[in-house]
Nucleic acid binder design. Structure first.
Lengths: 207, 207
DNA sequence: TGGTGTGAACGGCTTCACAGCT
DNA sequence: AGCTGTGAAGCCGTTCACACCA
């Protein structure tokens, strides 16, 4: 296979394949075809094959994909082959929900620190973590944390993001309804919840 | 302007333009150029002009866009020109956070009913709404609610979605980490939170 | 035979350059 | 002169058909 740029859309789909592969592995399934995977995920078989082929292709012709190999290869590609630590900033309603969200662990992701600006919250325990004051973000450098999760109001998002970057965070998951400007080498992925709901009426047939 | 299919990507961006326009209007700004809008949103000016041109273009050459006209036209396009009611199913941590999320109101979206399967929660009041039993989903038909928000575990998502559709819901915002199959004429938009965080390590330069 | 891997065709979104108004 | 509106070009991702191999 020749080298080709990997579409970002492919990267977005890999975690879905990974999750399903883990699930199948736990059920004792050893081998899966692209058609089987596809039907469960609402994707086409050729989409899956193409996606995987960007990384050399690791199936067996005439058979399918070895589930465990699928898992280890995708983990490797996504750099999820070690536990990745994240810091959450902002423990309001949404922040708290994210902190207790059960879906991160399966990807070897660990929210290892929580910060808030509200002195009344600082020091309290939440989901096994002590809430720290945002002024202590500097300590992240020595704690092996390089992912950030922003669950702060829009007005504060850019400032907090700047602070996180100053402290060595290289990638941020942003829940604030706000565009965030970052220097080269830092990645922001934004989940702007209201945007999704606001889109729905458009699709409802006018009848 | 001739008719052309509107890219879904354009529809995704319209709520962003709308939010900014509302904000500018509140600050008393009457007119904005595509370049001004773009810089605030991390989009290019020609992207904005192209997006708006799909709907006939409603700016003034040499001047820019009238902010209030921008608002009313985008509301119209997105069918947000009347209040749209949504039903939330699942009042766990995430569901509760969504219920109290302040970002929906600016789009004239209203979570008007809340359901849960847990009898211990049913009857309790949350954010001004009484939690109803999921068996009462049938009542949605007569309440003018045609948007659904799923905040239930993955295993339950498809079943609840089926129930919602049976009751006349035409569009669903799904927070469950699960692909949902729906008949033609129904739209599902999924926010699978863990997927976004799982993608971040990939972008962190390996250095 | 059966399912993967992949070049090539296709289609759709983005970028661009400039025509067209004000 | 300035900024919008838009055909055309370019780019990127998806779909396809089939070669390839167990």
């Amino acid at each position: 296979m020749r080298y080709r740029r990997v579409p970002d859309e492919t990267i977005k789909r890999l975690p879905i394949y990974l999750r399903r592969a883990i699930h199948l592995s736990q059920k004792g399934v050893k081998c899966v075809s692209s058609a089987e995977l596809a039907s469960l995920l609402g994707v086409t078989p050729w989409q899956i094959r193409k996606d995987l082929s960007y990384f050399g292709g690791f199936g067996t012709r005439g058979v399918g994909y070895n589930v465990d190999k699928l898992i280890s290869r995708i983990r490797e590609i996504l750099k999820l082959n070690v536990v990745r630590k994240a810091a959450l900033v902002g423990v309001g309603n949404l922040g708290s929900a994210i902190l207790s969200y059960p879906g991160f662990q399966q990807y070897w992701l660990d929210i290892a620190a929580v910060f808030d600006i509200d002195k009344r919250k600082v020091g309290k325990k939440l989901s096994g973590l002590i809430i720290e004051d945002v002024s202590l973000l500097g300590t992240l450098k020595d704690r092996g944390i390089n992912l950030g999760i922003l669950a702060v109001p829009g007005e504060a998002a850019q400032d907090v993001a700047d602070d996180l970057i100053k402290v060595g965070i290289k990638a941020i998951l942003n829940f604030a309804p706000q565009y965030i400007e970052v220097p080269r080498g830092v990645k922001v992925v934004t989940i702007d919840i209201a945007l999704y709901l606001a889109r729905l009426p458009y699709y409802v047939s006018s009848k």
